[in-house]
Nucleic acid binder design. Structure first.
Lengths: 182, 182
DNA sequence: TCCGATATATATTGACTCGATACATAGCAG
DNA sequence: CTGCTATGTATCGAGTCAATATATATCGGA
């Protein structure tokens, strides 16, 4: 699923400027997709060219002029078609996991810090998702499901980090001592 | 964490050719990092230029000539330094979540298929991780932790999919009917 | 009051990465 | 004997990101 398509999807929920689409990626979609201006603006230009979205210019007082994009009927049709053909793939990239894989190369204080930071991150993400879930009545069933999905993951990870974190630091220190004096 | 660094990390576990490094990304590291030839070969060239890795050419019978790369002491030092400065960030990208967000635009059969496929994917990933965990004595504590992390996530997701999947299909169909005849 | 942070808004650039492809050889299954 | 899988090196085009440029405005703190 490329950014062209994701912009089409975002606009299928309502008209928006490039800046506002970026905000949507940072808020509603942040737990499963990301996009930068460097891909959003070219995508909107291309979609306009293809007649899948249109825009009107909105001059604002005390703010720069906005280009408000809307999805066209052709765009809506195209998005539904692309969606039907999209395979449910996933990709996960984690520097945290890399740090854990090579944890024996980290000083103990740094390892502790990394684990604490990761735990805090998970906690923050969990709270964000729970807040969206609780304070939003207009969510579709599908959206509610993605939130449940994210909440489930983060809850089980938080439990793992809290149960296993301190123990891991000790294990790694043991391993280091064994390696240096076998 | 860029691919240069990841290659350095891979080579810190033992010498390997570009092809073998790719295999490592597909096996040991597949649940948290990925890399293609298009990034691995340029990375190895750059690292060689910087003196962080070196290589010898190994002529094989009935096989193309191999370039076997090894990490140099300077490379090992650089990797440890980079690791200390790496922040534990994570990124997750999921077309499955996009499909769920816009599930109301999918035909029912396709939605069912997507959910089944996702469940199968999670099951497969879970089995792969459990197999590595069980059949490998040489793992470091850190590596074992990354496997536990992955197993935890996939177990809780599998439970969610099995509890919630069928129900979701019904909910979405209800929602569609309400939307078309309010 | 002025400085820096934050927010709204569009847009581009360089660097990085992926997926596909090319080239070369060989074994194995149908 | 054709196609698939495997080992191996390497590049190219297309897509993407992070940073930056350019404007303007608000708001809090020194």
């Amino acid at each position: 699923m490329d950014i062209n398509n994701l912009c089409l999807g975002a606009l299928s929920l309502g008209e928006a400027s490039g800046y506002q689409i970026k905000k949507m990626f940072e808020k509603q979609f942040s737990h499963f997709q990301a996009a930068s201006f460097g891909s959003i603006y070219p995508a909107l230009a291309k979609l306009t060219e293809q007649g899948l979205v249109s825009f009107r210019e909105e001059t604002q007082e005390k703010r720069p002029t906005k280009k408000v994009f809307s999805i066209t009927p052709a765009g809506r049709q195209q998005f539904a078609k692309n969606l039907r053909e999209t395979e449910p793939s996933e990709q996960y990239r984690s520097d945290f996991m890399v740090l854990m894989t090579f944890a024996h190369l980290l000083p103990q204080e740094r390892l502790t810090e990394v684990l604490e930071r990761q735990t805090a991150q998970i906690k923050a993400e969990l709270e964000t998702l729970q807040e969206i879930y609780a304070n939003n009545q207009r969510l579709t069933c599908g959206m509610r499901f993605t939130l449940e999905y994210g909440i489930t993951v983060n809850q089980s990870l938080l439990a793992l980090m809290e149960q296993r974190g301190d123990q891991l630091v000790l294990e790694i220190e043991m391993e280091k001592r064994e390696a240096s004096a076998p």
